[in-house]
Design a protein around this nucleic acid. Structure first.
Lengths: 333, 333
DNA sequence: ATGAAAGCGCTAACAC
DNA sequence: GTGTTAGCGCTTTCAT
């Protein structure tokens, strides 16, 4: 690129095509008010000059931004599946996505701050960890949709999976297979951990398995599953429900090395139906979150709020679905 | 959020503080030319009104964008590690990152297109798959830095690992351990695949192991490693170098089930030193790419080009480093 | 140290 | 169907 080169603007195209700037604007936006002949000529010139509209100027002037900010964690494979769905959904609604990542050295506040300066029309936060008060303050400024997290506040929209039910499905499945000694490896300080743990506890109680309740502290990564597996060894249960697939994958990999076969000695149920859990060699029984529905709803909700829709049905809770694969079976004996 | 509410602007702050807009601008940018007293008062008002500068308007007016666009693939864990590094590097240079993801249903052209409209000052592409001609055309418009891919074109900057050397390190290590029957599982249509395959072939020849050359088609995902493992079964080598860690992880998981222990029957070397390869239960010997150096250089290069620096040292090739862990050992017998 | 005015690239209202 | 004008929120001269 030669330095000092300026970008092609509407004015350049207008000059070259011999028409006014406004007319070119009309053509570029595909708005009514230009003859077919003009339209064609302008388009041709634009293409020839390699014109690209300046989205900043466009949005600045028009006032509305058609931009939805998304905060995601670079560490969470499940959120990448969600991102994929969000792009599809936004595309259908004619919106763009502005991504901002949370990394080990870039926190959620920073990520959100940068989207604020970008003047997104709304924010979609994937499993936000910041306190409710901050979410509430944020939603004073713009529509905020939290995904994969419950938020008890009247101004924050929520689209999430019914995690209590998700763990009930998992436990019910294991009980049906004949298990009673079922443990749970939770998500540590992950935001959805409490809900899933609670689902496990309720389900166990409903089956009269109070005495077998056993919760091990885990986390969201493979290493957490590995650690938890070691911890279970002293007195191994016949089945375990795990906070998410990644942690479950860690367990799956280490259990055989610790002398426990899956599902022979111990059954394992994950959560999320992350793409890798489908792989033949992992073949993980898991609780699937309905990503398509969730992302579609999250974007729809954001768009409605941008349009100023009233507040009804603030929280959407999507039912999960149990996907039975090869890591669960009847207990021995 | 109440509808019809307008965002706080510089003018609002100026009015409230009883000074001119220009002065507020000076204060907000931390530019010289305002008294300490004014500065303090303006800052206070800005905070009270919850003022956030409009990055669009700011950039539109100032002409320079301090924005670097990054295209990454949502499917590639290694690229997430790179993203983390890029954020750090950009931050140090006072630049922002605009992310655009490639997903299974959103291709690279779309991802790039959206960044073009955002008027990024430069583009950093992670393992771009588009043809050189398109990269060249792009770099006519703006500085383009390709990472993890060689590009033979005078206008495209490149920051990549010396993959030929990376595979040589892997093969040398295996040969030193006593292996001769060493196979390679390549990356299929991944852009770096050719280079790594070539590194394997050269290294094998240098060791006089031409007759043992064996390349199996693979890919970048776990499932590719699983498939390749099955394919190797008919006549298992004593060691295998794999395109990347993810594919290697797939192999690691399936090999024991196919009756081959690692590293007892077969040694495995991955590539990338992705965070999960460090996990105790995976403990993968792998070729590490120096992410810190690469991301720092990529951002530095982008910034230089934005500043209009001349074209020297167009391609930076970083040496890889072998990380020996538990999946490699001397062959049996 | 501070303010007035111009204008970045674009869209929207209105005139013709 | 087309051109003219104004102005989005900001930075940047240039006065004072």
């Amino acid at each position: 690129m030669r330095a000092g080169e300026r970008r092609t603007t509407l004015a350049d195209v207008a000059a070259e095509a011999g028409v006014s700037v406004a007319l070119v604007s009309i053509v570029m936006r595909d708005a009514p008010g230009a003859s077919a002949a003009t339209r064609q000529r302008v388009l041709e010139v634009a293409r020839r000059l390699d014109y690209q509209p300046d989205s900043r100027a466009r949005l600045l002037r028009s006032g509305e931004s058609r931009l939805i900010g998304v905060v995601f964690g670079v560490q969470h494979p499940f959120q990448h599946d969600v991102l994929t769905g969000l792009y599809d959904a936004a595309d259908k609604q004619g919106y763009e996505l502005a991504l901002s990542a949370v990394t080990p050295r870039r926190d959620e506040r920073t990520a959100i701050g940068s989207l604020l300066q970008d003047r997104c029309a709304a924010l979609i936060l994937l499993g936000p960890q910041i306190p409710v008060a901050e979410l509430a303050a944020l939603s004073d400024r713009m529509p905020v949709v939290a995904m994969m997290r419950g938020v008890r506040h009247r101004a924050v929209d929520v689209v999430r999976t019914d995690d209590v039910r998700g763990l009930r499905l998992a436990v019910d499945h294991l009980v049906t297979l004949g298990h009673t000694r079922i443990a749970h490896v939770d998500g540590g300080r992950m935001i959805a951990s409490a809900e899933r743990r609670q689902g496990y506890q309720e389900a166990m109680r409903r089956h009269g398995l109070d005495e077998h309740l056993r919760v091990v502290v885990g986390g969201s990564g493979e290493e957490d599953g590995v650690r938890a597996a070691r911890e279970l060894l002293d007195d191994p249960p016949t089945a375990v429900t795990v906070f998410n697939d990644l942690s479950a994958a860690g367990m799956l990999d280490v259990l055989p090395r610790l002398g426990l076969s899956v599902p022979g000695d111990i059954s394992v149920v994950g959560y999320d139906d992350t793409s890798f859990s489908r792989l033949a060699h992992i073949d993980l029984t898991t609780v699937a979150q309905d990503i398509d529905t969730m992302t579609t709803l999250a974007v729809a909700r954001a768009v409605e709020r941008i349009a100023g829709a009233g507040i009804t049905n603030r929280e959407v809770v999507i039912p999960p679905r149990l996907v039975i694969r090869g890591t669960t079976a009847a207990p021995r004996g």
